[in-house]
Amino acid sequence: MKNTNRNKQQLPASQREALLNTLKARFEKNMHRHKGLDWANVQAKLEDNPGKLWSLNEMEDTGGEPDVVGYDKKTGGFIFYDCSAETPKGRRNLCYDREALESRKEHKPEDSAIDMAAAMGIALLTEAQYRELQQLGNFDTKTSSWVQTPAAIRKLGGALFCDRRYDHVFLYHNGASSYYAARGFRGALSI
């Protein structure tokens, strides 16, 4: 179900409650992702940050299945990653960034990964974050996900993506303007 409040960044009470219930159920089902963390603390932080809750709803609406994967002691924030088995369905067929999108002469995708993430209020996973996620399960065994690309690589026209094949996590490169039905992006959000 698409969020009709995309630009308001505030969820109606009923939608907020439904999202909190979904996140709580996922949190309790996957305790191995966040050992030692308590849902009551996560929920309190979410309720104090309606804009971040809106971003989590965007992650959920696009198929990301966000879940808590850590706690940052320095900031006191809970870290959420997209934990869907495959790259989120609502975030596929995207080139890497705006420059790549504008460089395409024909067959342009609807959006870019960087622009979509920014509109959602999240960031693409870094390679390190992607590898951390893969320690929690087997993700992207049939799909792949764009990851943050160093400026030096991007300047030369490339972009990076990762996936899991043969029980190993691989990092690859491609032209930033490329896009595929099985490639999207995973996001990170700290609350």
Rank of each mutant, 00 (worst) to 15 (best):
R6V: 14
A176D: 02
I122V: 13
A18P: 01
A123S: 13
G187E: 03
G90H: 03
Q148T: 15
G36A: 06
Q10T: 10
N7D: 12
L23S: 02
M1P: 12
N3I: 13
L189R: 00
K108R: 13
N3Y: 05
T75S: 13
L37K: 04
D163W: 02
N3E: 13
T87A: 03
E28D: 15
S112M: 01
N49M: 05
S103L: 07
S178P: 05
G137R: 06
R104P: 09
P50R: 01
N5I: 11
K52Q: 01
H168Q: 15
L136F: 10
F27T: 04
P66R: 04
K105L: 12
G157K: 05
A117F: 00
L53P: 06
G76R: 08
R91H: 05
R92D: 02
A152D: 15
A151S: 14
K8W: 08
L101N: 02
A123M: 12
S190N: 10
V69L: 07
I191L: 13
A182S: 12
A151N: 10
G70N: 01
Y96S: 07
R186G: 01
A119G: 07
P66A: 08
H34T: 03
Y172F: 11
D48G: 08
G158C: 06
L133G: 04
L56G: 00
Y166Q: 15
V147N: 05
S14Q: 12
A13D: 10
Y96M: 10
L46S: 04
E99R: 14
I153Y: 11
V169G: 09
Q148P: 12
D115K: 07
Q129Y: 07
M1I: 15
Q9A: 14
C95M: 06
A13K: 11
L23K: 02
D167L: 09
Q9Y: 11
G137W: 08
G90I: 01
L125R: 05
Q135M: 14
I114G: 05
A159Y: 04
G121M: 02
E60T: 14
D97G: 00
P150R: 02
E102F: 09
H32E: 14
L11N: 03
N174Y: 02
